[in-house]
Amino acid sequence: MATQSSRSAARLMMAPAVILLLGWMLVPLVMTLLFSFKKYLPLRGGDLGWVGFENYVRFVTSSAFWPSVSATLIIVGGVLIITVGLGVLLAILLNQPMWGQGIVRILVISPFFVMPTVSALVWKNMFMDPVNGLFAHIWKFFGAAPIEWLSQASMQSIILIVSWQWLPFATLILLTAIQSLDREQLEAAEMDGAAPLQRFGYVTLPHLGRAITVVVLIQTIFLLGIFAEIFVTTQGSFGTRTLTYLIYQRVLESQNVGLGSAGGVYAIILANIIAIFLMRMVGKNLDQ
């Protein structure tokens, strides 16, 4: 349906979005690149000149670097596995006939609306606090010693909090996908003699492929940048310092913009590796 005039109109109408995003991407990126080659300490003399790759070398060789990369990957991976796994189970459960389905849906979707700062604060204080938290009460009730969640099981705690926030998203997408599954397909499989588990494996799960792809893509985008959950709970201690948080500390807490910028470039590279990988997968899946 494309004529020359509609094509040029299309280009014109796409321009604002493309130009804005290009600017949003390029301007800070170029500045970050420039800073990363400088010794730049805003509170201690400002721009102290070019230093070549020194910041890059210092950032990777710092003992905090690799742990932060692995912390990032563990949190992203852990949350993805939990939300997709539980999401599929929950979606199947919610798809069964029951009373009050609408209300259950509202209950399940609710955490999605809670801002990360609030959920982190609530979990940290009211549930995970080793003295007054609800978990501590429960542990004591069963005669166990309360766990210091955010220090003894810091990663698990963060993953729990973040998974709680993202489970609704995964569940609802997967539920919608399950509901769109043609009943006749399942019935045909049943006629062909497939047991319930086989029907799930051969019919339902492949049907969910596209939905799972989207869940993974969208969640990864948001999870790579989680900040508030760590800022509010552990402040990056007890092994929960993600790459994002490490850079944040370099830039804002140690006021070393050069070093932080070099870290930013690493983070961008990491994000791009993951992005390429994901985009491949999504690109294929979106072709239908």
Partner: peptide
């Protein structure tokens, strides 16, 4: 273009925090 747009969302905000701050 669509995937590129989406990939800009994957740029870590913290990596560009200071430039944005200066701007």
């Amino acid at each position: 273009i669509l995937l590129w747009m989406l990939s800009t969302k994957m740029l870590p905000a913290v990596g560009v925090l200071y430039p944005i701050y200066l701007i």
